[in-house]
Nucleic acid binder design. Structure first.
Lengths: 246, 246
DNA sequence: TATGAGAACTTGTACAAACAAGCGAGCACC
DNA sequence: GGTGCTCGCTTGTTTGTACAAGTTCTCATA
């Protein structure tokens, strides 16, 4: 069942994206929307809260909400899965496993994924036929068998794991910085050694908080950009002093 | 006045950060918390929603909320202002204007900041005595006079502008990618030309949605990392195909 | 021992009502 | 003409209630 406030949010979002509510304009008041949709004010509030969280609208006490932007933001799945992101954007994409092996977990890894063996996989993902991303993923022992059963050119690991063992990636933590390309990175991405790469290190867990994987993803510059919209009172991105530990 | 749910959120957050609620543990149910704080369930719900939005806790229907992480996330001010961020982290920091001049707005800039002249400022920010950030900021015409009045070694531009003209930065959009250091970047940051830099391009607006500035900030690698935590149903960071237009 | 139904618990959605607090326009006054 | 105040509008906070929907554990049954 889809919630009422989601439907209302969808409708309002569509108006913003279509330009019916241009950037800079004021949204109708909560009471007006409540009347229009025949819903309680609380429900409408939840709906507009969605838009505010997406960065489409801005809100402050006493004044009407204003439209801040008209760009669609992505779902968790699209952020997590290269394949789902690329597909949603209408891009041509692919993937290929370069190397894959089991090994004992390092101290750092066992702190995140649990003790025992881990499965390390090196993949290259391409966009529009060009390699843009080197993915070094380390899977926890309990998912390793399922990952090993995947074909080397598996398009979407996320979807394949869901289909095979019902695994759902639910939470992620991401660290973003820049590094210079190592010899292997350079070769795989077709850039010079030492050229800049955008690095995204992530750890993903299931609903229950059980860690599934950590990954070191390196993007060729110019291929991908991360984007966030924030406001006073609501912002998710943080900046950390780098300590160069890993 | 501070809202009740904020106080409750503060208390719960403190418990998580202190380790009284370790990562992976379950939070008390809403009814338990409601009783403990003598508040309605709705109020408690708002409080835990804050923690979920901060990425500290995870939530799904039917199951108890679990603690996901124990790292403090930052306020908007800390993300926006280098000075406030550095101060909150207890770092030694500084800043210095290298160059500053007015010029007509480019087509790209007048689309964001409005027509007319703009003020371009080149700053270097340092952390623990070392230069870590080159900031190329372009201010809209209406804030230019206030910016020009600032001293060259102004520590916090954000705070100074608030004090002098009551300007509040309320909304921001951020694009993050990696670039290689140009000759000027390299000289100012003390790195080799071509070495990787983490770039954050941002546009900031006031409460009313009026654009104030756009900036191109370049961080020395290893000095600063961006971090976000996300989940199914709530994630603010997006990935964009790079089009190298600017 | 496994399986399935069920009950208890927990979070999600929706409505209604009331008051607090901030904003902005309009108006009176100097 | 400008200044300051008031009033209406709008969003923010809080409480209470009811039901929907998903999870987890227990217990009876095959």
């Amino acid at each position: 069942m889809v919630a009422r406030y989601e439907l209302i949010a969808d409708e309002l979002r569509a108006e913003i994206l279509s330009g019916a509510q241009p950037v800079g304009s004021q949204l109708p008041s909560e009471s007006e929307l409540a009347e229009r949709f025949g819903a309680a004010r609380g429900t409408v509030r939840q709906a507009v809260a969605v838009l505010v969280a997406e960065g489409l609208a801005g809100s402050r006490q006493g004044a009407r909400r204003i439209v801040l932007g008209a760009a669609r933001s992505q779902s968790f799945a699209e952020l997590h899965s290269f394949a789902q992101w690329a597909r949603a954007g209408g891009h041509r994409f692919g993937g290929q496993v370069i190397e894959q092996r089991r090994r004992p977990a390092s101290a750092f890894e066992s702190a995140r994924l649990g003790r025992g063996e881990v499965l390390e996989v090196l993949r290259v993902r391409s966009l529009e036929g060009e390699p843009v991303l080197v993915e070094r993923t380390v899977y926890a022992e309990w998912v390793a068998p399922a990952v090993e059963r995947l074909p080397a050119d598996c398009e979407s690991v996320t979807e394949a794991l869901y289909d095979s063992i019902g695994l759902v990636f639910a939470y992620g933590e991401h660290l973003i910085d820049a590094v210079s390309a190592g010899a292997q990175d350079a070769k795989l991405l077709g850039v010079r050694r030492g050229s800049p790469l955008l690095r995204q290190r992530r750890t993903t867990t299931t609903h229950e908080g059980r860690p599934v994987e950590t990954s070191d993803d390196r993007y060729k510059p110019g291929s991908v950009t991360f984007s966030i919209r924030n406001s006073i009172g609501a912002n998710p991105l943080t900046r950390q002093a780098g300590d160069l530990r890993f």
